[in-house]
Design a protein around this nucleic acid. Structure first.
Lengths: 183, 183
DNA sequence: GTCTATACCACGATAGAC
DNA sequence: GTCTATCGTGGTATAGAC
C-alpha cells in the first residue's frame, strides 16, 4: 500500500511529491507544487529537505527499494525459467504502475542508480539467469539483452509509439523467446 | 545533405540549435542560447520561427528525415537477414551519433512522430522483416520485439547503466538472435 | 515549524524604435 | 531583420519574524 510507515512531515512531503509526479509528470514537480499540495509554503519544505536534489534523491531511493522488493516478492521460491519470467513481469508491472518512479531507475540522470538497491536488482537478474543456464560462463550479455528488451518495450509502449495497432502480444513473445534462449 | 532548400537564416538557426542540443543537451537549448550562439538577440529569432515549439518541430523533422535516409541508404539493395541487420545497425549508429535528435524519435513527447517519415521508417522495418520470413502473417509483433530491443539497448547504454563491465557484445548477440528468429 | 518577504535567475514572448 | 526594453511566469533558495 503505502511506501513506508508514516511518521511526520518528511514522509508526507515525499508522498505528496510522489502523487504529483505520478499524476502530473515530472515537469509539474517543484518545491512550490509540493508545498501547495500540502497547504503550506515552499519555504517550509527546506526544514525537511535541504534542497530540491534531496527530494529527488529520496524519490530515487523509494523507487529502487520498491522495485527491488516487488521483484524479490515475485521471485519468491521459484526457480529456473519460471523465476526469471516472474521477475521480468514484476519489472514491467512496476514500470506500468509507477511510470514516473521508473524513470528514476532507467533514465539518464536517474536518481536511483546511486542506490545500493540498484546493484542488488542487477545481481538478482544475473542470479536468476544463472539458474536457468547450464553453462557457468559470464551471463552479463544475457542480462543486458533481457534488460534492454524489457526497458525498450516499456518505454516505447508508454510513449505510445506502437500506435493504434498496439504491440500485439510482443511482450510475451519476446520474453518467452529470450528466456528460452537462456536454457 | 540539408533538410530543406530554405533561404539563409532559418537554416543557420536550426544548425545552431542542433549544435547546442547535441553538445550540451536539451536543457541547454533555449531561444536565448541559440541566439547567443549566432551573435544575435533572442527576439530576433521570432522573425524566423514563430515560437519555441516551431523550433522543436523543425528539429523533429530533421531527425525523422535523417534517420529515414540513413536507414534506406544502409538497406541499399540488400535483402533477407542482411538487409534487416544493416538497417538495425544504421538505427543504432544514428542514435549514437545524434543522441539528442534520437530522443525526438523515441521519447514520450518526441517532436518527430507527427512526421510522415516516422511512419515510413516503421513500414521499412516491417517490410524488411517480411523479406526474412517465410510466413505471410502479421509481422507487427516481430517488429515490436526488434525495435524494443534496439531502443532499450541504446537508451540504457547511453545512460551508462551497463556500468564498468559494459554490455559485453550484447548488441551483436541479441540482434543476431532476434534476426535469426525471424527466418 | 511555518510564515512573509525577498532575492536571484532563466525562460518565452511582445512592442516599437531603427 | 535586428535592436532595446520590458513583461509575466515560475523555478530555487534564504533571512528573519512569529
Amino acid at each position: 500500500m503505502m511506501p513506508y510507515p508514516q511518521k511526520t512531515e518528511p514522509l508526507a512531503i515525499l508522498a505528496a511529491a510522489l502523487d504529483i509526479v505520478e499524476n502530473q509528470g515530472w515537469p509539474a514537480l517543484s518545491m512550490r507544487s509540493v508545498a501547495a499540495a500540502l497547504g503550506v509554503r515552499a519555504s517550509s519544505l527546506y526544514r525537511h529537505y535541504a534542497d530540491r536534489a534531496a527530494l529527488d534523491s529520496a524519490l530515487g531511493a523509494l523507487a529502487a527499494k520498491t522495485l527491488l522488493r516487488e521483484m524479490e516478492s515475485a521471485a519468491g521460491r521459484l526457480d529456473g525459467p519460471a523465476r526469471l519470467d516472474a521477475m521480468a513481469l514484476a519489472y514491467v508491472r512496476f514500470a506500468r504502475n509507477s511510470p514516473a518512479l521508473y524513470q528514476l531507475i532507467a533514465a539518464p540522470g536517474g536518481a536511483a542508480d546511486s542506490q545500493p538497491e540498484s546493484k542488488a536488482i542487477w545481481n538478482l537478474i544475473l542470479d536468476a539467469i544463472a539458474r536457468c543456464s547450464k553453462t557457468r560462463r559470464d551471463h552479463t550479455p544475457a542480462a543486458v539483452v533481457l534488460w534492454s528488451f524489457l526497458h525498450g518495450y516499456i518505454s516505447l509502449d508508454a510513449a505510445g509509439k506502437f500506435g493504434a495497432s498496439g504491440p500485439k502480444g510482443a511482450l510475451e513473445k519476446g520474453l518467452a523467446a529470450i528466456v528460452k534462449g537462456f536454457a
